[in-house]
Design a protein around this nucleic acid. Structure first.
Length: 532
RNA sequence: GCCGGUGUAGUUCAAUGGUUAGAACGAGGGACUCAUAAGCCCUAAACAGUGGUUCGAUUCCACUCAUCGGCACCA
């Protein structure tokens, strides 16, 4: 893919763009929910790279905590070996999905992560926001960990069937309560954005509290070192380890070199432009994380993009129901780009969504095999048969669409307009509008509108008949189709990078200005997307 | 229980205080053939319920029912 040839679809931008996923807990393999987070983020990152933004895309793994230690013990492994193993699997899936992250941060990585976490702790301390206090909770001896009221079954630990003990221990606390009003103000003013808006309302009402009671309390941010020390020691107090929040949330800046002797990336990329996360961890990102940043006098992230959960046939995936769907399953049957397509277009970035094998297949056949793939085949076959693949033309000679396509696009009706005109004045502006607003599903819709226009264009002129009587006009029509396909490929770059490249190579556009493109195309040897 | 959102064709979504409530997928039918029996055209198919405001409501309000989310240490 060359950048010089995509003049029409490139909006020149000199901005920086920093996007993050949460770090994934290294106690199990990644599932479809994680896959969605990764693909959504990757599409946004690739989009911003494609428009020229200086982009940094971060993902990583959260590797500390009692849960890891216990899970490792179960399989007779040390915690480090255990997480190494799981992280290797994560990275394998990340590679299979075609995720192009710039860095992978690991919280057990002393060189890349610990300095940042420690510096953040120091800053909170310096601001006077850390104090020693008593943490009270329910502790299960069997689990060697605190458990929450919600986890209890009949007042007992569900794993050990024992009554947990009420214990108190001395921890460090962070003055979260101090920052409630400021976070509320930033949320309401829009300086700190959360998408969708309903999540802002939730957080604001949480801060405000109910019945006149203050909403926010302080939180404990350390735990006493236990049998196996597995975490980042609290600076100047080795008897305590940082609890998950300070340890994990700081990854977003430690990965940029914060706290190391090279903070150049931090200066370049912070604050994050978009932090993608699932609704389950909204609170930590919308309250604790900004409070940490305010305390440390670091600017807040610009936007949290909060997505929903995936269900399988309307139910939560669970092994006991037997409805678990894995990303690997779809990749092996349909290919990586098909899965990316599904996640991009068939899923709302902010709502819960559902997946079934039946629906995936229907969507695949309708839009990839019959839609995109078939259009590529029929266009390139005609180009090859009639013109040996070499098609010359220009925008001024391209015929116009005849059929009225009602209620489509900004014009309402595109009859009488030619392909390049429609693309430049309607398709591309709307595509960019949606993609830059993180609405990748709507961006993808626009691409498929163009695909539909191109099919309609073939119906309008029937070049397969016309070629017998008017070769010049037929060439102008095929030229219009190839021009359209070239733009489809460009817009597809963030969503389906492999497919975009394949189409671009097949279409074979010359690297000259829009008005004089010569196509040196070839028909695909086999369909892009085999019908299933 | 409290707070907030949603409820439109088989499914996923859209729009609107007023002539025929749009689209996609899926289903049924048709004419074509460049193409992956794909594409194109046509057809059937919906405003949760009750009451209110209004000349007139699917659209505004109230209630009911259903459903989803939140109600702090769950990555």
């Amino acid at each position: 893919m060359t950048d010089s040839s995509n003049k029409t679809s490139t909006v020149v931008s000199e901005k920086k763009f920093y996007i993050t996923t949460p770090i994934f807990y290294a106690n199990a393999e990644l599932h479809l929910g994680h896959t969605y987070t990764l693909v959504l983020s990757d599409i946004l990152a690739r989009y911003h790279r494609s428009i020229g933004d200086k982009t940094f895309f971060l993902t990583g793994s959260d590797e500390h905590g009692d849960k890891i230690v216990r899970a490792a013990q179960k399989v007779y492994m040390g915690p480090q070996a255990f997480v190494n193993n799981n992280v290797a699997k994560m990275q394998e899936l990340i590679k299979e999905l075609g995720i192009a992250n710039d860095f992978f941060i690991r919280t057990s990585d002393q060189e890349h992560h610990w300095h940042g976490a420690e510096k953040l702790w120091h800053e909170l301390e310096k601001a006077g926001d850390i104090y020693k206090g008593l943490y009270k909770g329910l502790y299960c001896v069997g689990c060697e960990a605190f458990i929450t009221e919600k986890e209890l079954v009949d007042g007992k630990c569900p794993l050990h069937d024992t009554n947990p003990e009420h214990i108190e221990e001395e921890n460090y606390f962070f003055k979260l309560s101090k920052y409630g009003p400021e976070i509320k103000r930033l949320l309401l003013s829009g300086e700190f954005k959360i998408t969708p808006q309903s999540r802002v309302n939730e957080i604001v009402s949480l801060i405000s509290g109910s019945n006149g009671e203050s909403g926010l309390g302080d939180v404990s941010i350390s735990r006493p070192e236990r049998a196996i020390p597995w975490g980042i020691p609290v600076p100047n107090d080795p008897t305590q380890l940082m609890y998950v929040w300070c340890d994990a949330l700081s990854n977003y800046i430690s990965a940029l070199g914060y706290g190391t002797d090279n903070e150049e990336n931090f200066r370049t990329f912070w604050p994050a432009d978009v932090q993608v996360l699932g609704k389950d961890i909204l609170r930590f990102h919308a309250l604790l994380w900004p409070a940490f940043l305010l305390s440390a006098k670091i600017p807040l992230s610009r936007e949290l993009l909060v997505h929903g959960f995936v269900t399988s046939d309307g139910k939560k995936m669970s092994k006991s129901i037997g409805n678990v769907l894995s990303p690997e399953e779809f990749i092996s049957e349909y290919g990586r780009d098909a899965l990316r397509y599904y996640l991009a277009r068939e899923v709302s970035p902010v709502e819960d969504w559902d997946l079934t094998r039946k629906k995936f297949k229907e969507v695949y056949n309708a839009n990839l095999a019959n839609g995109l793939g078939n259009l590529v085949s029929r266009t390139l076959k005609m180009a090859e048969q009639y013109f040996g693949g070499v098609v010359t033309g220009d925008a001024t000679r391209a015929p116009s669409i005849k059929t009225k396509m009602s209620a489509v696009g900004a014009f309402g009706d595109i009859a009488g307009m030619n392909i390049p005109y429609i693309i430049i004045n309607d398709i591309l502006p709307r595509y960019h509008k949606h993609m830059s607003a993180n609405e990748i599903n709507k961006g993808a819709d626009v691409i498929w509108e163009l695909i539909s226009h191109l099919d309609q264009f073939i119906t309008d002129y029937e070049p397969f008949k016309l070629v017998k009587t008017d070769r010049d006009k037929t060439e102008a029509i095929i030229w219009g189709l190839l021009f359209g396909l070239r733009e489809v490929a460009q817009m597809l770059v963030p969503i389906m990078p492999d497919t975009a490249q394949r189409i671009s190579l097949l279409v074979g556009a010359s690297d000259v200005n829009v008005d004089e493109i010569v196509f040196n195309s070839k028909a695909p040897v086999e369909p892009l997307f085999m019908r299933k």
